[in-house]
Design a protein around this nucleic acid. Structure first.
Lengths: 341, 341
DNA sequence: CTGAAAGCGCTTACAG
DNA sequence: CTGAAAGCGCTTACAG
């Protein structure tokens, strides 16, 4: 019947419960001044009738924003966010917001942020981006909290963010290669300005250096986090008159590109060249040979991001404005001791 | 000021426009009985004040549902859906709904569908699934239209769906291999019951047969659309006493698995074995050698799906309860003439 | 084409 | 702890 009549109203519930509309309203709004028995009864009836009210607050949503093309990285993050959101009973609205010069952006940052607030977003999760100051201010004015996942710029105290231990990951990659006996290793990274890229590089270079195997400057390349850059950057490194015996790539896609370039030159991986990636996305598993890589717990990062975003939305204090989840080395078949000279 | 006062109300707009609240309400609801000048004025003011009203209908959303783990396939579909949704001004809520036995499902189909309706979903897009009859009926009762993208079961007139020309894709794969001179080809497909898998297989087998090169029954395997199945299924096919010179895989992931298995056996692709995939996702490009594959326009399918879903939501008639977008063969380096015997 | 007035669904300050 | 009553934001049938 209630399906015939459309959505149930408070009046219907009140009628069924034998209480006033006001009381039902109180239960709905979590007021304290309701007797436990009454509350339980009303809550039960609300459920039974699939009461849903109106307005977006009844159906909380979080906006998850990616800024570039979606790849294997996005996929893992997404699964983590969706897992946590299902548990929290929050819907996730996905959107793509390419990073354009502010002037070209439509709608303006203000309209965009107000639109999100109006649509009832509890919070915004922005993945892997250097969020424009304009957007940040607009979100703030609109009262929508922001959480940055895997921030591209060093974590500022103004912005809450979740990342992984990129520096430690770089250290682990170096230690692995050193243990195998490599003394001459190269770094082929992603965007020079990205904090994660910098941290990976510094962990790697510092560890190699401390072991007496400094990474020569001309074996360090910062490109972009893409397969094509692995292809091209790998070629540059392998063209070196004294080429490296191992290459640590800024992410898995770059690593797979390097492997492909090695292959086209008749080099065998790992016999003639060792390659280490970063991320441990699906592409690392599909790679041939299987890619030794530094695993980022992207799924967990997604889950933590969502939960933290909801904390911010609820006005609860967060433990720290930036947390990092642990990376770990996953050894597969793309690394081996260097070929004897 | 309006930011201080919270969201603007109709009264604010009416005041600013010098008309009554009733008139503003009419403009908002698209009523006819408003003078064009008045309408324009009010609409302008509504914009300026970022009027947003309340209730979900002001902020239309479409629910996009995936049923398995997200992979490269999902990524492409997603981008297409998001493209179209940005243009249409509709938010996309993403969710994962694993296909479990109905009894184990929480919440029940009814509660789930009513929840979607209550949250204001204009429509549901379900990707690649055999939608349980219970869900279907529940959505229907809740008044939420459903669109299936790449349906796993043959398109029934009750359900609107968007797919691609799988049969033609199978034909194209066969023709390509035949043109290269292959006479003994195998099929390593995905789920036997999936309509898309069946269509690919039948197009392939029929074309091979018509050319006088029937595909032997023991060179046909239906497994699942996964890399691991390519690994294992490829081994079975290559273990055949009279192994095929080419394998047509049900999707790219399977194809990459086959290539890997070939490699571990010292077979070179394409010299010793040709492999054709299906989908042309990112994994086909990352594959080494680059994978020859039948391209599904997954992005376009996503866009069409969203637009069609909105048509259904608006009660507009759709051209056909099922449309298929064209597949096309993308030739890369995993196919070549068979090695001379 | 416009708006006064009645009404709907909900919330809240307050009396009991 | 409960609910009558006032009020808010919006919609709509209807009079002009």
């Amino acid at each position: 019947m209630s399906s015939r009549t459309g959505r149930p109203t408070l009046a219907v519930i009140a009628e069924a419960a034998g209480v006033s509309v006001a009381t039902v309203s109180k239960v709905l709004n979590g007021r304290e001044d309701v007797a436990p028995g009454t509350r339980a009864l009303v809550q039960d009836l609300l459920q039974r009738h699939y009461y849903v009210g109106r307005g977006p607050t009844r159906h909380p949503t979080v906006e998850l924003i990616f800024h570039g093309p979606l790849g294997a990285y996005a996929t893992e993050v997404l699964e983590g966010v969706l897992d946590a959101s299902a548990q929290a009973g929050v819907a996730v609205v996905l959107s793509l917001r390419p990073l354009e010069p502010p002037a070209q952006r439509t709608p303006s940052a203000t309209a965009w942020a107000l639109g999100l607030a109006a649509a009832g977003r509890q919070a915004v999760i922005s993945v892997c981006n250097e969020i424009p100051a304009g957007d940040l201010a607009a979100l703030d004015r609109a009262g929508v909290p922001l959480l940055v996942l895997d921030p591209l710029v060093a974590a500022s105290p103004d912005v809450t963010s979740v990342g992984s231990t990129n520096y430690a990951g770089g250290v682990a990659a170096a230690e692995h290669l050193l243990a195998l006996g490599h003394r001459r290793a190269a770094y082929l990274g992603g965007d020079r300005t990205a904090a994660c890229n910098q941290a990976r590089f510094h962990g790697f270079r510092g560890t190699m250096e401390a072991a007496g195997c400094p990474v020569p400057e001309d074996l360090v390349l910062h490109r972009r986090f893409r397969y094509e850059e692995g292809l091209a950057g790998g070629a540059v490194l392998l063209d070196h008159p004294d080429p490296p015996t191992a290459i640590f790539a800024g992410n898995d896609e770059i690593a797979v590109g390097v492997i492909e370039t090695a292959r086209t030159r008749g080099l065998r991986v790992p016999d003639d060249l060792s390659v280490v990636g970063f991320d441990d996305t699906h592409v690392a598993q599909l790679s041939s040979p299987g890619l030794t890589t530094v695993r980022q717990p992207l799924r967990d990062m997604g889950s933590v991001a969502l939960r933290t975003a909801l904390q911010l939305a609820a006005g609860e204090p967060v433990d720290s404005h930036h947390v990092e989840l642990a990376t770990s080395l996953v050894v597969r078949n793309s690394t081996a001791p260097p070929a004897p000279r």
